[in-house]
Design a protein around this nucleic acid. Sequence first.
DNA 1: CCGTTGTTGTTGAAGTTTCAATAGTGGAGT
DNA 2: ACTCCACTATTGAAACTTCAACAACAACGG
Lengths: 157, 157
Amino acid sequence: MTEARPAAEPRWLTSTEMDAWLNVTQLLMLLPTALDRQLRDDAGLPHAHYRILTMLSAERDGSMRMTQLARRAGTTTTRLSHAVSVLEERGWVERSACPTDKRGQVARLTSDGWNFLRSAAPGHVAEVRRLVFDHLTDDDVTRLREITAKLLPSLAD
Amino acid sequence: MTEARPAAEPRWLTSTEMDAWLNVTQLLMLLPTALDRQLRDDAGLPHAHYRILTMLSAERDGSMRMTQLARRAGTTTTRLSHAVSVLEERGWVERSACPTDKRGQVARLTSDGWNFLRSAAPGHVAEVRRLVFDHLTDDDVTRLREITAKLLPSLAD
DNA sequence: CCGTTGTTGTTGAAGTTTCAATAGTGGAGT
DNA sequence: ACTCCACTATTGAAACTTCAACAACAACGG
């Protein structure tokens, strides 16, 4: 025998892959921090909470089941449960029992929630432009959409 | 006069930009969570802490000033200070006074720190491959490196 | 109908990040 | 030497996330 099974030399990253990965991880650290800062300063909530509101606002009635909302927002049910509690205290979201499944809860954007989003959106979009799209060509954007689309499926369970 | 200054209609995202942005933000939510889970389960620390160790390991003597380490790791000095306290308790990092600047502190990877990294790296690289590079062509990787390189400068202060 | 298993959503404690405040030192100008 | 401002790093409290445990209901098979 030559070597134990799990000790087989791993396939390390190539030089190009390593460069890309260093950039990606740096972006993973810096971009959320930058988005959080703008939203905290200007609107008083973290990006993850803002995201929950926008996902609700994409529904016609501004409401969604908790589990589905968690999936859409890219978060966990635990995180969502805590977050909705905060958003509920601020009056932007309301919980109600699901009529078709007694286990379920439905989160709904309140009137204040809609108003808040309308007031916060322009500043946030401006920041997203400033941080991201101002630096990219149309072709970059298309390619970014394609590449991210390839990565998402395996991350969504 | 027609309208107040800050109320000018913002430049909303185009359809393509919005698609790309939805993907990017979803990635921003899911990828760190996935990296954290693998590292917590297999190595017992979050990705941000692992990243600090790898940045130290890239230095020949495994040591760096706190502020520079924070920049390299894409974090803040506050976060780093807390993180190094944890890493120090686990025996993977040591602090010492900077000889040339009495305000400064130097973080250094210990022998245990090096050993830990050697043991954790293969599993982590495998996960990075599984989550990211297995889904991308060589051209994708090159393009990803270019696009991220365009975004980083404005994020690094 | 009953037991079993899976799903939904919440909770509390522990760990991590954020924010504001702070102490100590460096550096430039007077 | 002194003043002023910038830089370095840390601290504690509040906010957010993670993890394990749990309660309640749904869905399925016997």
